[in-house]
Amino acid sequence: MMQHVADVTDLEPGEAMRLELDGPDGALVALALVRAEDGTFHAVSDICSHGQVSLSEGEVEGSTIECWLHGSAFDLASGRPTALPATQPVPVYPVTIDGQNVLVDVDGTD
């Protein structure tokens, strides 16, 4: 189920924010809503697969987000790591833009 998480004006290109949404099992899902430098929106798990660190606090570079602690970077479209030390991908969640609304579906991952 799509959930309204932000307006398109809430993030500038190159910015990220942490969100906690209700997951399908009722548990909270921590995710990073990211606006890539090209202006596209992405939602990935906010927790780095290398360590329990918030990705939304990291740097957005092009279409990747870099973990601030150890430098792991992840492709925003696929969740795959693009820089070590992370070797495991992070979950990616579908994002839809409806007018000015940014919607995320935490029920299913891409």
Results as ranks from 00 to 15, higher is better:
Ser56Val: 01
Val90Ser: 02
Leu19Gln: 09
Val34Asp: 04
Ala30Glu: 08
Thr96Tyr: 13
Gln88Ala: 12
Gln52Lys: 15
Thr9Glu: 13
Leu76Arg: 00
His4Ile: 15
Gln52Asp: 11
Val95Ser: 00
Gly14Tyr: 01
Thr64Asp: 09
Ala30Ser: 12
Pro13Arg: 07
Thr40Pro: 10
Asp25Gln: 03
Glu61Phe: 04
Val102Met: 07
Leu11Phe: 11
His42Tyr: 04
Trp68Asp: 12
Ala30Leu: 11
Glu59Val: 05
Thr64Arg: 03
Cys48His: 00
Pro89Cys: 10
Asn101His: 15
His50Arg: 10
Pro81Cys: 08
Asp7Leu: 12
Ser78Met: 03
Asp22Trp: 08
Pro94Asn: 09
Glu61Gln: 06
Glu37Ser: 07
Asp10Ala: 15
Glu20Gln: 13
Pro91Gln: 08
Asp105Gln: 04
Leu19Ile: 13
Ile97Met: 12
Glu61Cys: 08
Ser63Ala: 14
Ala77Trp: 06
Asp22Cys: 05
Trp68Lys: 12
Ala6Glu: 12
Ile65His: 07
Asp105Ser: 09
His70Gly: 02
Asp75Tyr: 08
Val104Tyr: 01
Gln88Lys: 12
Arg18Asn: 14
Pro13Thr: 04
Leu55Trp: 04
Met1Gly: 15
Asp22Ile: 13
Glu57Trp: 03
Gly108Lys: 10
Gln100Ile: 14
Tyr93Met: 01
Val34Cys: 08
Val29Met: 13
Glu61Ala: 13
Val102Ile: 02
Asp7Ser: 14
Ser54Pro: 07
Glu57Asp: 11
Val102Thr: 00
Glu66Val: 04
Val92Pro: 13
Gly71Thr: 13
Thr87Ala: 14
Ala73Asp: 05
Gln100Tyr: 14
Leu11His: 12
Asp7Phe: 13
Ala73Tyr: 09
Gly39Ser: 07
Ala6Cys: 15
Val104Gln: 01
Gly39Phe: 02
Glu20Pro: 05
Ala32His: 03
Ile47Met: 12
Met1Ala: 15
Ala32Glu: 01
Gly79Cys: 02
Gly99Tyr: 05
Asp25Ala: 05
Pro13Phe: 06
Tyr93Thr: 01
Met1Asp: 15
Gln52Thr: 08
Asp98Val: 03
Pro91Thr: 09
Ser45Gln: 09
Ala43Ser: 08
Ile97Asn: 09
Thr40Tyr: 12
Ala36Arg: 00
Gly71Phe: 04
Asp75Leu: 10
Glu61Val: 06
